[in-house]
């Protein structure tokens, strides 16, 4: 129930910079995902917030408190690791009670809190088991109960679900969301799975090479990516490059592409991102924003169809279509693609 913020943080391991100029706010009660490719620094940022890693510069505040100099054990955080990290020599109940004991909560109060926490994760009858006798999903839920029982000011999760199979992962995602919204706990969730980030988060921060390249609500980032990287990493995207001429982008073959977003000055060469599902095959009617392309491959994916196309000048494009009437267009056919000016988004390279 606390806002977490990171100010001007940088960190290098040896001479390799891992994080640069990180400024981020995780507002009270929000679920924020740190999304980025492997090695982009997500775990390092999370470990700096937790206190496992000391930043070279900058600071961290949790609530009103500057915690930069405070070690892990003094920060009152809940944390969940990919490897569950249960104490193997203690029963489930003792695992959950561990943090309570350290806070001096004993007597009748402790077992009650433990029971409530286990009940919350639907493991009320598992208190006497040893961790090794639980399934992966059950172990992860014990870890969640253990982290939540101390009433942390922030919940930090480092890819906690990636060791679980798909079905179980989706179930756990629902659980996690339910518990998070019930408790209103500020949550920071590290993942490299964009789908997971989209479905779970109130906010997403995209990391690339140690920098936060864009952050905001999932919809905001998806509909208005600011960089080519963001457009590609969250969802899929087509890219077209041309020269700005009288308020439109003219492609090398002469086609003019309209945008609603403001364009740079004439003669500049912006890149436009167009989401594959925002394009549609359209008849030749002289409308703007249309481009001819030959179908190279058709991928049938059940509810959706995905086409790989090529324009006459060699640019590859993707097109996603809902599967209404089966595959209507064949490989080798040349079709015309059309999209609304609102869907051509200028992005930085």
């Amino acid at each position: 129930m606390t806002t977490v913020s990171v100010q001007n943080v940088a960190k290098s391991f040896g001479t390799v910079p891992v994080l640069r100029d990180i400024d981020a706010v995780f507002p009270q009660g929000t679920f924020t995902s740190l999304l980025g490719p492997s090695g982009s620094g997500k775990t390092t940022l999370l470990r700096i917030i937790a206190g496992f890693v000391t930043p070279d510069q900058g600071g961290v505040t949790i609530g009103e408190k500057d915690v930069t100099g405070i070690p892990v054990w003094g920060r009152n955080i809940g944390i969940m690791f990919q490897s569950y990290a249960l104490f193997p020599h203690m029963t489930v109940a003792s695992n959950v009670a561990f943090g309570l004991e350290l806070r001096g909560i004993r007597g009748a109060e402790a077992p009650k809190a433990v029971a409530e926490a286990l009940d919350m994760v639907h493991l009320a009858d598992f208190g006497d088991r040893m961790p090794k006798n639980l399934s992966g999903g059950q172990q992860q839920r014990v870890a969640l109960a253990r982290a939540m029982v101390i009433k942390p000011s922030v919940l930090l999760l480092d890819e906690p679900l990636s060791a679980l199979d798909r079905r179980l992962r989706q179930k756990m995602q629902v659980e996690l969301l339910r518990i998070q919204s019930q408790t209103g706990l500020t949550t920071i969730f590290v993942t490299h799975d964009q789908e997971e980030a989209l479905t779970l988060s109130d906010r997403i921060a995209i990391l690339d090479k140690g920098r936060i390249v864009q952050s905001g609500a999932p919809e905001e980032i998806y509909e208005n990516p600011q960089t080519r990287f963001a457009a590609e990493f969250l969802g899929d995207s087509n890219f077209l490059t041309g020269v700005v001429e009288s308020g439109a982008v003219r492609l090398p073959d002469g086609t003019a592409i309209q945008t609603t977003a403001p364009l740079p000055a004439n003669r500049q060469k912006p890149t436009l991102a167009i989401r594959p599902e925002k394009m549609s095959p359209a008849p030749h009617d002289g409308a703007t924003n249309q481009i001819a392309a030959k179908i190279l491959t058709v991928i049938y994916a059940g509810p959706a169809l995905s086409y790989l196309l090529q324009t006459p000048d060699g640019t590859r494009l993707k097109l996603f279509q809902a599967n209404r009437d089966g595959t209507l267009m064949r490989e080798g056919e040349t079709i015309t693609l059309h999209w609304s000016p609102a869907h051509s988004i200028p992005v930085q390279d």
């Binding site: 496992f52 070690p71 003094g74 990290a85 943090g99 253990r146 982290a147």
Partner: peptide
Amino acid sequence: IDDAIIGAAQSLGARWWVILTKI
């Protein structure tokens, strides 16, 4: 012993002597 186990204990408030004696 997995590093994460020690990390988990620290996050729950354990200082080094608790980690030593209890983990």
